[in-house]
């Protein structure tokens, strides 16, 4: 997949940390959800975040994207996140949330084109470059043939691929995805994996919250979370990381090597 060649001019090659969090605290409706997170996310790598429901994974991802009021310090590509103008941040960091959209009446093409909003004024017409990027994004997620259809006419999995294309169309050097595999069938989960690997190969930084542990173990590193804290952060091939994942899920799953991959299956105890 030849995708986003030469479009990483925003990222400074001297920055090796794409996202840096120090003493990050987040409260939602007066309930503390994150308790002092310290985290370095390496640039040009794929980092996955795993943990049981309610561990604070999505909240952490939102905080890293600057989409939540937080206490503590976050840096994006070496710059303090909260002092970045919204549009500058939007150009550097793309976001794919979960279960949000009601844009049923928009055509697939128009939805993907919204990813270009940070690139020009709201009044300006879309440029040929915008068109090229949107086409590339829709083709990359195999959503191109629906471009004239309304989003509301698609199935949940098909929508998810359109929304992924929307996030790709931003062409940001950092891409954050919250449960991007939701509603995707296994072949398209495999496609997603190839897409992420291709993005990372071209220098993009990818962070994704995943419930599919076997998928998450394809990442370069995994952040393991429980109860608003990071219990472990390390390479997925590392024995310690795998034990940490098993532990955070109460040893109800076990990680095994199979055909050169790590797979998580229900533990039989």
């Amino acid at each position: 997949m030849q995708w986003r060649e030469g479009l990483l001019d925003m990222s400074d090659p001297t920055v090796s940390i794409a996202l840096k969090a120090r003493q990050l605290h987040v409260s939602l409706a007066d309930t503390p959800v994150l308790h002092g997170i310290d985290l370095d996310i390496a640039a040009g790598q794929w980092t996955s975040i795993v943990g049981p429901n309610g561990a604070g994974k999505s909240t952490l991802l939102k905080a890293l994207a600057g989409l939540l009021p937080t206490a503590g310090h976050v840096e994006l590509l070496g710059q303090p996140l909260h002092s970045l103008p919204a549009r500058t941040r939007a150009l550097q960091l793309a976001w794919l949330g979960q279960n949000e959209t009601t844009a049923d009446d928009l055509k697939v093409w128009d939805v993907a084109m919204l990813g270009r909003l940070p690139h020009h004024s709201w009044l300006g017409a879309s440029s040929p470059e915008d068109h090229a990027v949107v086409e590339q994004a829709l083709r990359a997620t195999h959503a191109w043939e629906w471009r004239e259809r309304a989003l509301g006419q698609l199935s949940a999995g098909e929508r998810q691929r359109v929304l992924l294309a929307r996030a790709l169309a931003v062409k940001a050097p950092v891409l954050l995805m919250d449960e991007p595999l939701a509603n995707l069938d296994p072949p398209h989960q495999a496609d997603w994996l190839q897409l992420v690997l291709a993005l990372v190969a071209q220098g993009c930084t990818v962070v994704s919250v995943l419930h599919e542990i076997s998928m998450a173990l394809h990442a370069d590193t995994t952040v393991v979370m429980a109860q608003g804290r990071i219990t472990h952060h390390g390479s997925c091939a590392d024995e310690q990381t795998q034990r940490a994942v098993e532990q955070v899920f109460d040893h109800r799953l076990a990680i095994h090597a199979l055909a050169g991959q790590w797979v998580a299956i229900p533990a039989n105890n």
Binding site: G97, E100, T101
Partner: peptide, 9 residues
């Protein structure tokens, strides 16, 4: 697209 996504843009 939802408030969070809108702000991310």
């Amino acid at each position: 697209l939802g408030e969070t996504t809108a702000r991310s843009l």
